[in-house]
């Protein structure tokens, strides 16, 4: 059996500019510091071995694969599952440990870009995953599982979008190609993630409902997570079609923010006769963006409905 731990989001060294890497590190360190101080405050001493073994669990569970479509296989990435079972702060730390070991021990993802990888695969999926789950915390089992599925899928899409944006901001790919390409690939990875996360959570709910009960870390975090999770999901929904259909707009923003200088940006202006057979710039990416948009909106509407319904009760 061949062990291939590399989900396609692990950015290697050299694929982000130092500038972008540094900004990602900064964001990651800020969020992680918060997570560490929160866990140090709230966690019992029992929590240290728990988080350690859970990190090993996520790592090992990523090896459980299953056939999805025509030879591709799905497997767990684990951000949403970690967030739901351990609570958001502990989930972030656990995912960070997993990504760090993948980079350090297996060169799966670079070292200078580890900040970006932690952000894309550790922090954002946890925030999105937990935010959605938190919205249906007191709902019934079916609602929880359905929303978990949407959350898991969106958590992967959000990570993919951020990865694409970072590569583009580094000047290493064209916006109108990298965004639809990354999102298109991750539609399927996200579906795999959603299915296995829902099945695993359903199994845990059946066997040990106490682990997700009122006393668990999973139920204790505040309602603010719902807003943050929805906000990031909204960014994915609004930005993805925009980036795919109107790259110039985002480019102007990036220039204004000082990410890319004007001469560099000229490289990515409208391209004559330009297209890539496999990734496709025109029809397939537009369709992909459309599909994503529809699915995301349906998912969000459902989540929001659940959330509002709960508020009324």
């Amino acid at each position: 059996m061949l062990f291939s731990p590399a989900p396609p989001m692990h950015i290697p060294d050299g694929f982000l500019s130092l500038y972008v890497s540094a900004i990602c590190w900064l964001v990651t360190i800020l969020v992680l510091s918060l997570a560490i101080s929160k866990t140090n405050q709230s966690l019992g001493e029992r929590q240290v071995p728990l988080m350690g073994v859970m990190a090993a669990f996520i790592f090992a569970a990523q090896m459980i694969n299953f056939p999805v479509l025509g030879g591709t296989s799905g497997h767990l990435l684990g951000g949403a599952l970690a967030a739901i079972t351990l609570g958001p702060w502990a989930g972030m730390i656990v995912m960070t440990a997993v990504i760090a070991v993948q980079a350090l021990l297996f060169q799966d993802g670079g070292l200078t870009v580890m900040g970006a990888n932690i952000l894309n695969m550790g922090l954002i999926p946890v925030i999105v995953g937990y935010g959605f789950y938190r919205a249906v915390l007191n709902r019934n089992r079916i609602a929880k599982l359905a929303v978990t599925g949407v959350a898991a899928w969106l958590s992967v899409m959000a990570g993919a979008l951020f990865t694409a944006l970072q590569i583009w901001l580094s000047g290493h790919a064209q916006l109108d190609v990298i965004v639809p390409a990354m999102l298109f690939v991750h539609i399927f990875i996200g579906i795999g993630e959603a299915m296995i996360t829902v099945a695993a959570l359903s199994f845990i709910m059946r066997t040990r409902p106490d682990l997700l009960g009122e006393e668990s870390e999973s139920a204790k975090a505040g309602g603010g997570w719902v807003l943050i999770g929805l906000a990031i999901a909204l960014v994915v929904i609004l930005l993805s079609p925009f980036a795919s259909s109107d790259p110039d707009g985002l480019e102007r923003v990036a220039i204004n923010l000082g990410f890319i200088n004007t001469s560099n940006a000229a490289v990515y202006n409208i391209l004559p006769d330009y297209s890539i057979p496999l990734l496709g710039q025109t029809s397939s990416s537009t369709i992909a963006a459309g599909v994503i948009g529809v699915m995301v909106v349906v998912g969000l509407a459902y989540a929001a409905g659940r959330f509002l319904q709960k508020k009324k009760v």
Binding site: R46, P49, L50, G52, V53, M54, A56, F57, A60, A61, I64, N65, F66, P67, V68, G74, H75, L76, L81, T85, G192, M195, I196, T197, V198, A199, A200, L201, S202, F203, I204, T207, R208, L211
Partner: peptide, 21 residues
């Protein structure tokens, strides 16, 4: 297939949880 894989992941989760105890 996804359900089987998910059950495996869930089972592994619970074993890991108990091991951490």
């Amino acid at each position: 297939h996804a359900k089987v894989a998910g059950n495996m992941a869930g089972q592994l989760f619970l074993r890991s949880y108990e091991r951490s105890d």
